[in-house]
Design a protein around this nucleic acid. Structure first.
Length: 215
DNA sequence: CTAGTGATTCCCT
DNA sequence: GGGAATCACTAGC
């Protein structure tokens, strides 16, 4: 069996580059989640770059902690975090090792295993919403804490892989401020998405939440 | 379509 | 203790 040209795993050197190069280059790539019932494959349509300790929006901004430890490790590994008491989101660590830069996978188009994704995403009103948003994408693929640190470049069988897919030409890539990032971290146009793609999540500016019941 | 709000747990200060 | 790289749901236009 020879793999089709769009289903060749991306090598580790793909991720061992500055995060601002890797992030737009991930658009159009295929993220494959292996499950006992079969694969679920997502074509990436929206991502965000986080550039390590120099980036106020990054989880690594204040240094290494138990939670962000994977970000400080080698490129090509998955950083999964838990947020808002309910959701998981996933990142891909970029190079060079120790810089703690990573790409948040924000949205994608389910191109294989939509039936399996629908089971996990019963609230989705249509297939475009299956992976429209970082926590939705993680939910659709069944990503949780157990996947934290997974090597997507491993040669042995892994629960998660990244394949070549069809890279998006520069003219179809758009960029803008990152979603939900506050303060100085919000000024950088480090969110990248495929122009005019219906699976890209709506932009939400950061809004600090006040506690209910007091003023 | 937009805007507002509750849910629910973990992490870090 | 405060707030978080979010989502689902509702109301209103």
């Amino acid at each position: 069996m020879i793999a089709p040209p769009d289903r060749i795993p991306l090598p580790r050197k793909f991720f061992d580059r500055p995060v601002l190069e890797v992030a737009p280059d991930l658009l159009g790539r295929l993220l494959v989640r292996s499950t006992p019932d079969g694969p679920i494959t997502v074509r990436l349509t929206e991502v965000e770059a986080y550039d390590g300790p120099n980036d106020p929006g990054s989880h690594a901004y204040r240094g290494r902690t138990p939670r962000n430890e994977v970000m400080f490790g080698p490129p090509g590994h998955v950083y999964v975090y838990f947020t808002y008491g309910m959701w998981f989101c996933m990142n891909l660590v970029c190079g060079p090792e120790g810089r703690a830069s990573a790409v948040l996978l924000r949205a994608g188009e389910v191109v294989e295993g939509a039936d399996l994704a629908r089971e996990r995403r019963a609230a989705a009103r249509n297939d475009r919403e299956l992976a429209k948003g970082p926590a939705r994408l993680a939910t659709a693929l069944g990503i949780d804490r157990a996947l934290n640190g997974t090597d997507v470049c491993a040669t042995a069988a892994t629960p998660l892989r990244i394949l070549t897919g069809t890279p998006v030409v520069a003219g179809r890539v758009r960029s803008g401020p990152r979603t939900g990032v506050s303060g100085d971290g919000g000024v950088h146009p480090w969110r990248y998405w495929i122009d005019d793609d219906p699976t890209v999540s709506p932009y939400r500016a950061h809004v600090p939440r006040r506690r209910s019941g007091s003023s």
